[in-house]
Design a protein around this nucleic acid. Sequence first.
DNA 1: CCAATGTCAGCATAACTGACATCA
DNA 2: CTGATGTCAGTTGTGCTGACATTG
Lengths: 147, 147
Amino acid sequence: MADTRRSLPQLLGDARRWFDEGLLAAMATTGATPVSLPQLQLFAVLDEAGTTVSELARRMGVTRQTAHQAVHGLVAAGLLEQTEHPTSARQRLIRRTPEGAHAHQQAELVLERLEDRLAERIGREAADALRAALEAPWGDPPAPGQA
Amino acid sequence: MADTRRSLPQLLGDARRWFDEGLLAAMATTGATPVSLPQLQLFAVLDEAGTTVSELARRMGVTRQTAHQAVHGLVAAGLLEQTEHPTSARQRLIRRTPEGAHAHQQAELVLERLEDRLAERIGREAADALRAALEAPWGDPPAPGQA
DNA sequence: CCAATGTCAGCATAACTGACATCA
DNA sequence: CTGATGTCAGTTGTGCTGACATTG
């Protein structure tokens, strides 16, 4: 407590770790296919219809190559599959296998429970306010020159 | 928007990136000694009196070795120094050099400004609520067995 | 020819585990 | 002797950039 207060970045990091640890632990107990954190993140940006790797990369905010790597791992694990695009031969659709869909639902369920747990501990209003603040449009990080 | 809402971990990660990018950019323009992100994180857990590496590791939530590595880099950069512990010969105190103290203040100032900027964009109440929610005691991540 | 895509390969960073010497 | 500390070393994971073939 020597310091006035902990820095926001650090608090944000701790909060994220809280969720990540809970999620990983819960997924591990399901006994199913072990997934890494970035792979879970990839799941979060998937959609039902199927998507291309480039599109996934844009949604995750990483490069095509990074997304490709994550997809590759999940394909190898049998949770995703690549199918031919109906109209375009250069694009390949990424979709979940039945097992992948199951894991996906499992992960979303765990996340919901974690959020409920958090609400129990810090109060529903605080949890809602947290989500609201995070969902608000923050814009780009301020450039120092204009500060 | 196909999905109901983005996952909290992802939102938290984005928020953290927002601060990290702004902080790094601002620090870069000061022209001073270039610091990496983990090194900045290390600065955040320092105190005036001086601390041991093991203690810093505990505060950061990482292993002794990881903390040691970060300290080593900052010592090499001239921002930190290791001095002998007054009473114990096996412990070595980590303290800031004058230059390190300057960089530290600089970083804290930038962070304050970033938080103000955020308040301008999402509203003061939302920003305060965010900090309040993050500072609340979350406890340990829930174990899946008891869910 | 040009732009976007999917892919492979190499590199950098940052965390980890293992091991060991030192000292209370 | 035991435990905590500081340190060196190696390893793993995750992201990046560079390069190239393919296709619309």
